[in-house]
Structures are given as structure tokens and as C-alpha cells.
């Protein structure tokens, strides 16, 4: 017998609230939950949809990912992809210790807003110790602290009924899209802390996303802005993210 888990209880509350914010999870048959924004041609697209749909069905309870013990935290967590964006604005913010960093939350939200790092830290916080799984094959465990993306969307008055994706831009030109199913997951957080300290430069200071049911490349670093949209047309090649623009899977639960 499993002990009743407080996480599970709070999860139920979370989902009810998520429904109110997104209005989306209540309509379980919304196909957006089962396929990427753009389905690739031919059999590859069929396989993509099969994978995403089957995993989403298995994940429909919005279960939490496994969390680990503090003793399991990895020393020398690897740093991949950009580790210090060559971007004038970013470098200026970095020199100012991110005091001027602002996170605009715009698009299909009821009250577009902009949050400073302090604003973000005043939102409810969540700390989780999880295994970061890179599509290359490596994995490492770290503790992440941040504001749930759901709370950030709520700070902008919640999303409108047409909203389907959350698009996050990063300094250095990266961008990545997430659907509401992932956006409202309790462990999807905008992390500003790592292993009890401020998020280090190489790991995406001042803020990176943790979207724990996906591979490493979806954990976008150096977050610059958030836009809520109904589709991905007009962003990059329109596939829903820089990784999928280059033919990696958009849905990266694997």
C-alpha cells in the first residue's frame, strides 16, 4: 500500500486551478495534446503522433516525475549548448547582476505583464531534485528552485481560451514551444536557483525552464520572454521550437 502523498493532493488542487487558467485540460479530446504543432511528412509523422499520443495518455493524470534525495545530487553537472550568450543586451544585464532583467509575459493572456527577478521570487516557489536526461545519453541530478510556470501565467491574469502554446525566447537566439499540458504541470518551473544557490551562468542565469518530462534540449536556458500563442506559425520555421526546426523531436518525452 502506498502512503497518501501530499504531493498528490496538492496536484489535484493544481489541476483544478490549471483548468481554470487554461480552460483546456477540461476538454480532454483536444487533439493538440496528442500531436506536435506541425506533424512531419510520411511515416516519421505517424511515429511522432503515436509516441506523443501514447505517452500523453499514460501521463493524463499529470503524475509527478521521480524526485531524488539531496545526497544524490551530481557534482560537476555538465554544461551543454550555449554557456554565455554573445548578446549585447544579455551581457549588459549580466554585468548588472540581472537587476534590470525583465520577463515580459504577453500574447494570449488576460493581463500582459512584465516580471523582474524579484517579482518571480515573490511568486510561490517550488524546489525539486530531478534527473536531467539529455537526448545524447547522459544524465545528471540537480536541485532546482523556481516559480511554477502556471503561477507566472496566473500573474498575467491567466490565458485566453484560444491559447494553446507557451513560447519561450532565450538570449542567444534559442526559442522553444510548450503546450498547455506541460505548461501547467506542477514541476514545470522557471528556475532561478540550482543546488541551493543562484542559477549559475553556464546553466542559464538568471532563469531557465525545467520541464521535467522532457529531454534536456527542452530545458531552455537564459529565458528572455514568454508569449502565449494559439499556433506556431511565423516563429522560426514554424515547427514549434529551434530543436524541431532542425528535425529533432518537438515532443521530447522520447
Amino acid at each position: 500500500m502506498k502512503k497518501p502523498n501530499p504531493e498528490t493532493l496538492s496536484r489535484r488542487k493544481f489541476i483544478t486551478r490549471a483548468g481554470a487558467v487554461g480552460g483546456l485540460l477540461l476538454t480532454g479530446c483536444d487533439t493538440v495534446l496528442y500531436k506536435p504543432p506541425v506533424v512531419r511528412d510520411g511515416l516519421m509523422g505517424v511515429a511522432d503522433v503515436l509516441t506523443m499520443a501514447s505517452q500523453r495518455l499514460l501521463l493524463s493524470g499529470q503524475q509527478l516525475v521521480q524526485e531524488h534525495d539531496a545526497s544524490e545530487i551530481t557534482k560537476n553537472f555538465p554544461i551543454w549548448n550555449q554557456s554565455n550568450p554573445e548578446d549585447e543586451e544579455y551581457q549588459r544585464l549580466r554585468r548588472g547582476n540581472y537587476a534590470d532583467w525583465q520577463l515580459p509575459v504577453t500574447g494570449m493572456v488576460n493581463r500582459p505583464t512584465s516580471l523582474s527577478l524579484e517579482d518571480l521570487k515573490r511568486l510561490p516557489r517550488r524546489t525539486q531534485i530531478t534527473n536531467h536526461i539529455c537526448e545524447q545519453g547522459w544524465s545528471a541530478i540537480a536541485q532546482w528552485t523556481g516559480a511554477p510556470l502556471l503561477n507566472v501565467l496566473e500573474a498575467a491574469g491567466g490565458v485566453t481560451p484560444e491559447a494553446r502554446y507557451v513560447l519561450i525566447d532565450a538570449y542567444g537566439g534559442w526559442y522553444e514551444g510548450y503546450d498547455m499540458f506541460d505548461a501547467v504541470h506542477p514541476q514545470t518551473i522557471l528556475a532561478y536557483g540550482m543546488n541551493g544557490k543562484e542559477l549559475p551562468l553556464g546553466h542559464g542565469a538568471p532563469v531557465r525552464l525545467r520541464v521535467e518530462r522532457h529531454c534536456g534540449y527542452k530545458q531552455i536556458k537564459f529565458v528572455k520572454s514568454i508569449r502565449v500563442v494559439s499556433n506556431m506559425d511565423g516563429f522560426g520555421r514554424g515547427t514549434g521550437g529551434l530543436n524541431s526546426d532542425f528535425d529533432f523531436h518537438w515532443y521530447a518525452g522520447a
Binding site: 509527478l64 516525475v65 530531478t130 536526461i133 521535467e212 518530462r213 518525452g253 522520447a254
Partner: peptide, 9 residues
């Protein structure tokens, strides 16, 4: 067992 989704499933 290698897929991130299964850390939740």
C-alpha cells in the same frame, strides 16, 4: 526506462 516521460509514468 531511458525516456524522460517514464520518470513520471
Amino acid at each position: 526506462a531511458q525516456m524522460p516521460a517514464f520518470t513520471a509514468i
